[in-house]
Nucleic acid binder design. Structure first.
Length: 190
DNA sequence: GTTGCGATAGTCT
DNA sequence: GACTATCGCAACG
C-alpha cells in the first residue's frame, strides 16, 4: 500500500497544479481515510489571502519549507485546518484541503463527531475533516510522503469534472479563481 | 429548506 | 487590541 503514497515530486510544483491534482486522491490518518473532493490554492507573490503573505514567522515557517508537508493551523480560535505544502523549498505555496468523501473508519469518524445528523456532515468542511480524521496542530510540519499521515493514489481513480470558483471565507483576493471541487460530489462544503 | 449570529484562542500590529 | 482560510444551533418558513 505504501507504493501508492504520492512522491515528493508531486508537490514540488506550483500550488494551482497541486490543488487540481489532489482532487480524487486519498488522505489517510491512522485507521481513517477519505477522498479529497475540494481544495484551495494559496500562493506566494501578491496573494494577500495567504498566511505566508506576511513573510516567514513562527507559524508560517512550514509553508516556506520543503513540499509535501502538512501545514495545520487554528482557524477562528476553534478549528484545525489541514494544508499540504507545495512549490520547491524556500518558495511559499500550499493547498488547503476543504472537504473529503469518507472512505475508511466511518464508525471512528462518527464517534469523533457526536451530534451530526448525517454522514454528509462528517468531513464536508475544513474544520470538520480534521476532527473526523483526528488531525491537529500536533501534525503541523509532518512529512506526508511517509508515516501516519499520508496522501495516496486510489486504486482506481474514476473520471470527474472539476469546477473552479473563488475561495471561501476570505476578504483579500476574494475573486481569484483558486477553489477546485469535484463536480457533483455531495461531500463538497457549502 | 434558509438566514443570522455567537463561540473562542492564536497570531501579528 | 484587531482580526480571522469555520461551525453549529436557533429561528424562521
Amino acid at each position: 500500500m505504501s507504493s501508492r503514497i504520492l512522491p515528493r515530486s508531486f508537490y514540488a510544483r506550483d500550488a494551482v497544479t497541486v490543488a487540481r491534482e489532489l482532487l480524487g486522491k486519498i488522505v489517510a490518518h491512522g485507521e481513517t481515510a477519505g477522498m479529497i473532493v475540494e481544495t484551495e490554492a494559496y500562493l506566494g507573490g501578491d496573494d494577500l489571502a495567504a498566511h505566508s503573505a506576511a513573510g516567514i514567522t513562527p507559524r508560517t515557517r512550514v509553508i516556506f519549507g520543503p513540499p509535501g508537508h502538512a501545514y495545520v493551523y487554528l482557524s477562528y480560535g476553534m478549528h484545525d485546518c489541514l494544508n499540504i505544502t507545495a512549490e520547491r523549498e524556500g518558495e511559499p505555496g500550499c493547498v488547503l484541503i476543504r472537504a473529503l468523501e469518507p472512505l475508511e473508519g466511518l464508525d471512528i469518524m462518527r464517534a469523533r463527531r457526536p451530534g451530526i445528523r448525517t454522514d454528509r456532515d462528517l468531513t464536508s468542511g475544513p474544520g470538520r475533516l480534521t476532527k473526523a480524521l483526528a488531525i491537529t496542530r500536533a501534525d503541523n510540519g509532518v512529512d506526508v510522503t511517509h508515516g501516519d499521515l499520508t496522501v495516496r493514489r486510489p486504486e482506481h481513480q474514476q473520471h470527474f469534472e472539476i469546477d473552479v470558483t473563488p475561495r471561501i471565507g476570505i476578504t483579500k483576493c476574494a475573486d481569484w479563481p483558486l477553489r477546485f471541487v469535484i463536480r457533483g460530489n455531495k461531500y463538497v462544503s457549502r
